[in-house]
Amino acid sequence: DDSIIIASGTTVLAFARCIRPIHRLTVISASIQVSETLAANESIDVVQLGGSLRTSSLSVVGKYAESPLAEFSCSKLFLGVDGIDLDFGITTTDIREADLNKIMMHTAQKTIVLADSSKFRRRGFSKIANMDEIDLIITDEGISDKIANRIEELGIELTVVPVTQKQ
């Protein structure tokens, strides 16, 4: 019985594949792959944003993706990023995607960044947000203790999950 936003990217697509709601769930997404994955579950109502298609990520961007978000309120945004620099903030490689992500953040009550440990100390081309706008980061055990401690000092909740090898 929740409404969430799932942005685009390979990490959030992997997350979407794991969603098993107990009750009804409404998901708004810019990712065609996320929407397609979730559409197979009858307990999930999917709202696919429109807009200009980015063929590299099969996601939408632009004003037609952004404008419907003003009409919604969601509890959480699950956001994939291309870089996390603790001084600069979170980034992506595409300006239009950064703009859409900013609007998604305003639509959601809580911003959750899903990023593997390789994304730390990296910067993408376009800034999405400052670190103080992030509520929770979920990453893998490859994160250094120094970075983990700094994230917690910034007041950001951090969840570190073990990496499992696929057989």
Score class of each variant (00 low, 15 high):
1 D>P: 15
3 S>F: 11
4 I>G: 06
5 I>F: 04
5 I>D: 01
6 I>Q: 02
6 I>C: 01
8 S>W: 03
14 A>H: 01
15 F>Q: 10
15 F>I: 02
16 A>I: 00
19 I>S: 02
21 P>Y: 01
23 H>A: 13
26 T>N: 02
28 I>S: 04
29 S>K: 04
29 S>L: 08
30 A>Y: 06
31 S>D: 06
32 I>R: 05
32 I>S: 01
36 E>R: 08
36 E>H: 11
37 T>N: 09
38 L>S: 00
41 N>Q: 11
41 N>G: 12
43 S>C: 14
44 I>R: 03
50 G>R: 09
53 L>M: 13
55 T>M: 11
58 L>T: 05
59 S>A: 15
60 V>M: 05
62 G>E: 05
64 Y>I: 02
66 E>W: 07
67 S>C: 13
70 A>P: 03
70 A>D: 04
70 A>Q: 13
71 E>N: 13
81 V>I: 09
82 D>T: 07
82 D>S: 10
83 G>Y: 11
84 I>P: 02
86 L>S: 01
88 F>L: 13
89 G>N: 02
93 T>E: 15
94 D>S: 10
95 I>P: 10
95 I>E: 14
97 E>Y: 07
97 E>G: 05
99 D>I: 14
101 N>W: 06
101 N>C: 14
102 K>A: 14
106 H>V: 11
107 T>N: 11
107 T>F: 04
107 T>C: 08
108 A>Y: 11
109 Q>K: 11
111 T>F: 01
115 A>D: 01
117 S>T: 02
119 K>M: 11
119 K>L: 09
122 R>Q: 09
123 R>K: 15
123 R>S: 14
123 R>Y: 11
125 F>M: 15
126 S>K: 13
126 S>R: 04
128 I>N: 07
128 I>L: 06
130 N>M: 07
131 M>V: 12
132 D>L: 06
133 E>C: 12
133 E>A: 15
135 D>P: 10
135 D>V: 08
138 I>G: 09
139 T>F: 02
142 G>I: 01
142 G>R: 01
146 K>A: 12
148 A>K: 08
150 R>F: 13
152 E>K: 15
152 E>R: 12
153 E>P: 06
153 E>N: 15
154 L>D: 01
154 L>C: 06
160 V>Q: 06
163 V>E: 08
164 T>F: 14
165 Q>W: 12
